[in-house]
Amino acid sequence: MTMIPGEWTRTRQPSRCLSDLALDQLAAGEDPGALVLEAWRAHLRQCAACEARRAELGAQRAALLARRPALALPVGGAGRGRPRLAWGAGALAVAAAALVAALRAPAPRGAGVAAVRLKGGLGLEVFVKRAAGQVEALWPDAPASEGDALRFRVSTDAGGVVTIVGVDAAGAVSSYDPAPSALPVLSPGERRLLDGSIVLDGSVGQERLLALLCPDREQTQAAVGQVKRALAAAPEGTPPAPAGCRETVFPFRKVARR
């Protein structure tokens, strides 16, 4: 086994140190702009840690060139064969540790928190538990299939009562309400995973989920009625948010179960 000097990634990096990207660009002779280039070079002259890292990356490059398994690039581009490399110990733990630390850390500062689907201060995130048991975040327009269970997380910058309405490919409208008295009440700024889940049936096609947030339970129930009537009249359209309420639409594709 050929051990490559240095780590594949840095576990600790002083905040002002150059990234591997910057060092890779320097090694490749790329021009990030005169001012940036001069700043990088000046930093390297003063920073032993970055200079050491630059040397490590150079050693890795030299090791690859020394061993250099041939690329197998057939016409058409698909790879074939797999030359075996036997390089140093894995760095998965390093990556994992960094990301675990990231998950435990407060969210980065800067822009405000945005949900997957956000409109008018009402965010809707959808999570799917596959029939095989795996839980995933569902991305807008992503596929889901019969037997998958959906759960919803709603966030809002204003308080109110929330409900979810589904519209299937045939225009059939379903309300995923519990009893009206149990409609969830959110406080301003709250993000909440709603209780319960829905299990998808076997119909296929483009479906939509509508989150509605209104000031109170009565208005929320009335809004559901308005949305259902609007969809009955124009199944392809997106009904406007009823007066006083907020609405966010989350589209996804219902596909046949594989």
């Binding site: 990634t9 490059r61 075996r84 894995g90 990556a95």
Partner: peptide, 22 residues
């Protein structure tokens, strides 16, 4: 010029020489 960089980053993310070489 860049093969080692590509391998390094793939190796970090996948934790496997074989997958990184793929």
């Amino acid at each position: 010029l860049h093969g080692a960089m590509v391998f390094r980053r793939a190796r970090v993310l996948l934790g496997s020489d074989d997958l990184a070489w793929d």
